[in-house]
Design a binder for these strands. Structure first.
Lengths: 348, 348
DNA sequence: TTGAAAGCGGTACCAA
DNA sequence: TTGGTACCGCTTTCAA
């Protein structure tokens, strides 16, 4: 039990050369059915599992892909995106005998180094690029390193293969929802400008608002955190007369929306009676809070699965086309409702 | 740029044998200072990074350790433990050039298979065993496989190296806190009995309650989820007269405590005026909710770091002693307060 | 101290 | 169709 079964053992038992074992077990042609059968039998008898290390060295592959999570160490802790994203990745990796190497880098610079060393010692065959920033330095890096990569929710002109989930439609649905409820004065809590997805959501919201002939009263920059939502609510609502406040707010992610809700409540505003609030993501937590959070539901799990498929295909030398998964769409729950009556009159 | 720099290149440039390069670069004796200097210089000039694959095959090591997360696919999503735990692991792995391989198995059986295949193809040199169950099948498995492993929060008689964070003290602190606030009738929402940490918390609570001469009114089994907390609150509070209710409740983790809080609120109970509620973990979310959650703060990050250190040492052939990190302790926040006045009178 | 060479466990090419 | 063998890139004896 101490010494492992190698391909040599299998060859010996089947009475063939190791090259035949290799061919047979990898379903390559050039082995007679009879020999193949004997080899498979021998392998099974011996409980042979090819060593990843041997294969790795010879095949010049790591059979692993990498995900580097950056930002604060508590990302995984408070941001449900990665959990679901990783879950999706796993569903694809596992059947194809690949493994996921997860690394965390607190600061952007450190993150780059992680990618660099993953590539340098060839620990991975490719990487995911989630949470893309504007002019993200990881892009030229992987290009320079010749490291296969897949971008997640990238811009249209992204130079690498990417998987995207449309955000525009969901935002339009939400604004239409607001409009139908009589809201005229909307506001937005964005994410940090350096993130592409923050910008995408902002642009889509502004467009939709204009399209419906509504007013974009206020835009406050948040940071995708709960605390950021609290701060944004303070900035947007505190000390303002009802007539001066927006009646419907979109926060760029659910976490900040939930913070926003909490602060709004502390300021004496009832949601959705005095104010409608919506988030973006569709995290589970949004169904926990009261009122439950209206949101634009995304599919990080699917995004992960598709990204993994694209990455493995790319590693296999296939040409991969960008993929658009089903767009995010509105999920109406308890935090949005009709515009306060006072505001109906005040319009126009 | 296309072909990588190997040890052969370095040897050639330094004008020495590859064995000398290996010795020199790994700080092994038997190389003269002068030669060593030349080799280091050459390596640097060429930007040599040893191939993990070559090392791996030759050294019979994967230079990676594995973490298999089981239970529902949404674990990482809603349970902040793993994010912090992984963060802690990383801080130790990275400087020692190890990587973390993360896998997810939804069902326990599947999880076992993951461990099995990780061991079979030698993708990892060791594994973490978090969230131990009673008679956890992973334990005999890793023993049989001869796979180094470290248990997290294991029982005292655990047969493998383990890192633990004391839970008893924190629970005692909490019960003392309850007692000081005048509470006499306590209750507990546990986690599933099959988890060791659920049982540990239950036992500690019962002991502490007895020690203070208080009453353990009610014990309801939860499932460590928000929904479980909601259900537990329903079972414990709904349709009961104030005199029949406990006045202070410990939920076995924060997430369920937060669900408990929400449901209590819906049932018209004010926390902490009508009822005190505490959790266990110290997750960030507990500071978001209103009232903020009194809890017993744990240190998953530290647990991860220590577990990683122990695992790597074990892999290096060192004998590792079990480690106890600073025990979890009480964090008083807003969800606990004085016993309702009606109950003060009713005691005795 | 240095260098040559034998593995580690596979893959893949080439002759037989 | 088979078997032999040269790698893959490093570590580790063992002579020189």
């Amino acid at each position: 039990m101490n010494t492992r079964v190698t391909i040599v053992d299998v060859a010996a038992r089947a009475g063939v050369a190791i090259s035949s074992v290799s061919s047979a077990l990898n379903n390559r042609p050039g082995v007679s059915d009879e020999t193949r059968r004997r080899i498979v039998q021998a392998a099974q008898d011996l409980g042979f599992v090819p060593s990843l290390r041997g294969r790795s060295l010879s095949a010049k592959r790591a059979f692993a892909v990498g995900l580097v999570v950056h930002r604060d160490p508590s990302v995984l802790e408070s941001d449900p995106f990665f959990g679901a994203f990783i879950g999706g990745i796993e569903t694809v990796l596992d059947p194809r005998d690949y493994a996921l190497i997860l690394q965390m880098g607190s600061e952007p610079v450190e993150t780059l180094d992680r990618y660099r060393s993953l590539a340098a010692n060839r620990r991975v065959d490719g990487v995911f690029l989630p949470e893309l920033g504007v002019d993200d330095p990881r892009v030229p890096l992987v290009q320079e390193l010749g490291l296969p990569a897949v971008g997640v929710n990238a811009e249209p002109d992204f130079p690498l293969p990417a998987v995207r989930q449309g955000h525009v439609e969901g935002v339009h649905e939400l604004v239409a929802h607001f409009a139908a409820l009589g809201h005229r004065r909307l506001a937005l809590v964005t994410g940090p400008h350096e993130f592409i997805h923050a910008r995408q959501r902002r642009v889509a919201f502004a467009e939709a608002v204009a399209l419906h002939g509504l007013r974009l009263d206020d835009v406050v920059e948040g940071d995708f955190t709960y605390e950021g939502g609290i701060a944004a609510a303070g900035a947007m609502l505190e000390g303002r007369a009802p007539q001066d406040r927006p009646t419907a707010v979109l926060c760029s992610n659910d976490l900040s929306a939930i913070g926003f809700l909490a602060r709004a409540g502390e300021l004496g505003l009832r949601v959705p009676d005095d104010l409608s609030v919506a988030g973006f993501d569709g995290i589970r937590l949004g169904t926990y809070v009261r009122p439950t959070l209206t949101t634009i539901g995304t599919a990080p799990r699917l995004l992960g699965a598709e990204a993994a498929r694209m990455l493995l295909d790319q590693i296999d030398g296939l040409t991969v086309d960008d993929v658009d998964i089903e767009h995010a769409s509105l999920v109406v729950r308890g935090s949005t409702g009709p515009v306060p009556s006072g505001h109906l009159a005040s319009v126009r």
